[in-house]
Amino acid sequence: MAEYKAENELDDELFEHHRFEAAKGQSSLRVDKFLMNLIENTTRNKIQQAAESGSILVNDVVVKSNYKVKAGDIVRLVLAHPTYEQLLTPENIPLDIIFEDDQLLVINKPAGMVVHPGHGNYSGTLVNALAFHFENLPMNSSERPGLVHRIDKDTTGLLVVAKTEHAMAYLSKQFAEKTSEREYIALVWGNIEEEEGTIEGNIGRHDTNRMQMAVHESEEKGKPAVTHFKVLERFGYVTLISCQLETGRTHQIRVHMKHIGHTLFNDERYGGNSILKGTTFTKYKQFIDNCFKTLPRQALHAKTLGFEHPITKEFLRFDTPIPQDLQDCIEKWRVYSKAQTFTEET
């Protein structure tokens, strides 16, 4: 096994990303499948590549992907690049703080800011900024300092950050038990027939496109998710809606709206950056292109956030105005819709 290195050599150049102890009732299972069941946002191919490079160790011994994990085994995944905790550097990035006390703060996140470091985004994140402005923030269950919940990079709006262990536990429980309040404003393709409705569906990684999430019938492939929506304005080929979340799954609104045939406007990852509804007229195409330039991201804003304060028990509710780029795009549609007679085309 000359290609594999002893652990003392590995420690000089590799970084531990994951460490798991197989439970007492663990049945014999290939280590690649064992890790697939425990690591989010990965693929079996990546894990097998890690095994081929000598990056998977069981009880401090490098193993191949077909190694059978048994009860009590300590399984470690070590890679050539550090985890975000290991390279987390405080960065002097301004924060739009709309509320702060000794327990928590509420931030209005701009478009383009990633919430926490990850693959391809190791700096310039909200967590980098928090590390600069605050010391000793509590870790959540994913070892991310201060974060109670998250929103996507190009989604704007409100986030609550815990400053104490008590606040972290108290706030996290509210999100888990669905007693927090979260309202989003979204512009979606198509004319939604109902005035309001509820979307339910298990959200998990897409079967073939690992960059996307999808709705699955089986809970084995996804976690239950519930989104309530209400129509605010109709513009013919697009609809402005309000969404209330019961759950907080990855890309939940984006996935649920696509699932019912109303992909978010200019949502590149889910196909909303193509003309999904409208006419074949050149002027219409030019209008959509201008809208995309005005709003170069998915049309989604976390507008309202409510929760019970961990100490005072007062229910706090925060509201932010729709950001200028989304406002401008909505106004373009408002003007356009008044001047048009719409005929639905496929």
Score class of each variant (00 low, 15 high):
4 Y>A: 10
10 L>I: 13
15 F>K: 06
17 H>V: 11
19 R>Y: 08
22 A>F: 00
24 K>W: 01
27 S>M: 12
28 S>Y: 10
28 S>C: 08
34 F>Q: 01
35 L>M: 04
43 T>S: 15
47 I>C: 08
47 I>F: 01
51 A>V: 02
55 S>M: 11
60 D>W: 03
65 S>W: 12
77 L>R: 01
79 L>D: 06
84 Y>F: 15
86 Q>V: 12
87 L>R: 14
90 P>E: 02
94 P>C: 05
96 D>G: 04
129 A>C: 14
134 F>S: 06
144 R>I: 13
149 H>W: 06
153 K>F: 06
154 D>I: 05
163 K>R: 12
166 H>I: 14
174 Q>H: 10
190 G>S: 09
190 G>T: 08
198 T>V: 14
200 E>R: 11
200 E>G: 06
203 I>C: 07
206 H>M: 07
208 T>Y: 13
210 R>I: 05
214 A>D: 12
218 S>W: 10
226 V>L: 12
230 K>L: 03
231 V>A: 03
236 G>E: 02
242 S>T: 02
245 L>M: 11
251 H>Q: 11
252 Q>A: 06
255 V>I: 12
260 I>E: 01
260 I>A: 07
265 F>L: 13
270 Y>L: 09
283 K>A: 14
299 A>M: 09
301 H>C: 03
305 L>E: 02
308 E>L: 11
313 K>H: 15
314 E>Y: 08
318 F>V: 14
320 T>I: 15
321 P>M: 05
324 Q>H: 12
328 D>Q: 14
328 D>A: 15
332 K>P: 12
340 Q>M: 09
346 T>Y: 14
